[in-house]
């Protein structure tokens, strides 16, 4: 009698609810991140509802190990909560950002939890909540170099600037040389007293074009002396022919 009473008391004290929680599940396998220093990586964490009722869930902040003198990577989940319809799956994006100051080859381990939201209460007792837990590992790797196309684009820009500068500079130099050098002597003007004079730049009749002062002085001096020499030769010849 005493034993029966004791058993009955124990059963009474054990609680009343016998209905099981809905079936919350996850796709098997760890979430492994290999993140370059200063960059981030995103993977999907898939949770599933195998029951006949919708499941409201929320994601708890990831718990990870720490490394002395190193900044722990930032792990964010999106979305942080939601509703999984009956017999449906739900993908939560897990993003890991690796701080730029960390060293490569470091490993952090932790867990990510997806918990079923519950409205059950148990005054004087404990509520049993259901969840799924995923192990995560995060490895830091060397910073990635600039992609090849960035390097190629940079080289192309440098080449274009260089070539265009050379062309522009080259043209300017030619222009200066052309104004400084002795001008040609057109055949029309020979023998008419103006032989040896430099061909004047095209004059529209409205006024002479201005030459640059220095170059016009130099060229006129040179042409004057040449003109004198030629005139003296010509006069000598004409004197002889008489």
């Amino acid at each position: 009698m005493d034993k029966a009473l004791a058993i009955g008391m124990v059963l009474l004290l054990l609680g009343l609810a016998v209905v099981a929680h809905a079936q919350l599940g996850e796709v098997a396998g760890p979430l492994s991140f290999n993140v370059s220093i200063g960059s981030s990586q995103t993977l999907n964490y898939t949770i599933v509802n195998a029951g006949n009722n919708s499941i409201n869930f929320y994601i708890k902040d990831a718990i990870t190990s720490t490394i002395k003198n190193e900044t722990t990577p930032t792990i964010t989940a999106s979305p942080m909560n939601g509703t999984i319809l009956p017999h449906q799956q739900y993908s939560v994006k897990i993003d890991v950002s690796m701080p730029s100051g960390d060293k490569p080859g470091l490993l952090w381990q932790g867990t990510l939890q997806a918990l079923e939201s519950t409205n059950v209460t148990a005054p004087g007792g404990a509520v049993i909540q259901t969840g799924v837990l995923k192990g995560i590992t995060v490895m830091s790797s060397q910073r990635k170099g600039l992609p090849l196309y960035y390097v190629g684009a940079f080289v192309a820009v440098v080449v274009v600037i260089g070539v265009s500068s050379y062309i522009i500079y080259g043209r300017r130099r030619k222009g200066r040389k052309g104004s400084q050098s002795a001008t040609t002597f057109p055949s029309k003007e020979r023998g008419n007293g103006t032989y040896g004079k430099p061909s004047a730049p095209s004059i529209s009749g409205k006024g002479k074009r201005r030459k640059s002062a220095r170059s016009s002085r130099t060229s006129s001096r040179t042409s004057r002396s040449k003109t004198r020499r030629k005139q003296s030769r010509a006069s000598k010849r004409s004197g002889r022919s008489r």
């Binding site: 004290l13 054990l14 098997a28 898939t46 007792g125 404990a126 049993i128």
Partner: peptide, 18 residues
């Protein structure tokens, strides 16, 4: 079909009495 695991628990509340 990926490898998947689920969990259903019963009961959902327990009591330790007084």
């Amino acid at each position: 079909v990926p490898s998947t695991c689920y969990l259903a628990v019963t009961p959902v509340t327990i009591s330790f009495g007084s």
